[in-house]
Design a protein around this nucleic acid. Structure first.
Length: 283
DNA sequence: CACCATGTTCCTTG
DNA sequence: CCAAGGAACATGGT
């Protein structure tokens, strides 16, 4: 379920559920998601440790814990990849088929489930160092954004996916932000006008903030077997109205633009799909 | 069988 | 050295 807004919603939901919960046992079913941390390292660190703060950085979840009889904070980094989910479940519930890590919290289990195993639950924090500013925080300034865009000849859509430029924008919200700003996805980053840089900066923030706003009005469904299309495709029955038109271009190839009625296009850029309205995004 | 999929990292190429 | 592009990772849906 994972771009910045979805991770933010997840963090907000997990925070009260995990606060001060103590890990009794660690079960790793897919060691690759810990790499380069080993199963033994994770077990040693986490057994008897207690959850403290949980925060988000870009698309990463940062779990802060405290080991038993220790003041030293211990940090575990989570990432959902493309298909990851993290949730709590009663021990009586069946484990999902692709549960990668299970943390025994006593009454319940914390489960990291990920069919494609592209995500992470690791003690290696190096990924955080490469991240650019948080788009919804004050350090995401127009000045730095403009400077960084000037140094790249990549198509602007591709550049928006660069987590060093701004952290947390993924394939869906990159297309959405460009539509919002009226910018053609193929335009080279260093050729945006100052007005376009301003519009894009604002659009990135707006699109992400609105998605968080939208997600925060719905309770997350943690029950077993629930496939989470929550944010993208409005899978929740009876919620169609709510989700209607939330995504303006993503996955809408061939359909009418909500703004001008012309057909939405799909193109390939850096091996990913980009959706846009050729009429609303002329430059 | 074909192609598609919300992401990151590594390797190659220019 | 750098920027950019593509492959790899692994599974499931259509």
């Amino acid at each position: 379920m994972p771009e910045l807004p979805e991770v933010e919603i997840l963090v907000r939901n997990l925070r009260p559920l995990l606060h001060r919960q103590t890990i009794r046992e660690v079960q790793v079913r897919r060691a690759a998601v810990l790499a380069p941390t080993s199963v033994a390292q994770l077990e040693t660190a986490l057994v008897d440790a207690t959850f403290q703060e949980i925060t988000r950085r870009g698309k990463f979840l940062r779990f802060e814990l405290r080991a038993k009889n220790s003041r030293l904070p211990l940090v575990v980094l989570g990432h959902l990849g493309m298909t990851g989910r993290m949730f709590l479940a009663r021990k009586s519930e069946p484990l999902p088929k692709h549960a990668a890590v299970i943390l025994d919290l006593g009454r319940r289990n914390f489960i990291y489930d990920d069919p494609r195993y592209f995500g992470r639950l690791t003690m290696d924090l190096s990924s955080l160092e490469k991240l650019g500013p948080e788009p919804l925080a004050a350090d995401f300034t127009i000045e730095k954004f403009a400077r960084d865009l000037k140094r790249s000849r990549q198509p602007i859509k591709v550049k928006l996916l660069d987590q060093a430029l701004v952290a947390g924008v993924g394939n869906i919200y990159a297309s959405e932000a460009l539509f919002r700003a009226g910018i053609a996805p193929r335009r080279a980053a260093n050729r945006l006008t100052l007005a376009q840089v301003n519009a894009l900066h604002r659009a990135v923030r707006t699109v992400l903030a609105e998605a968080i706003e939208s997600g925060s009005t719905i309770p997350l469904n943690f029950s077993a077997g629930h496939t989470d299309g929550l944010f993208y495709y409005g899978s929740a029955a009876g919620q169609e109205d709510f989700y209607a038109e939330r995504l303006q271009v993503y996955d809408r190839a061939g359909k009418a633009c909500y703004h001008c009625g012309s057909r939405i296009h799909r193109i390939r850029q850096a091996a990913r799909s980009t959706f846009y309205c050729a009429r609303c995004q002329k430059k």
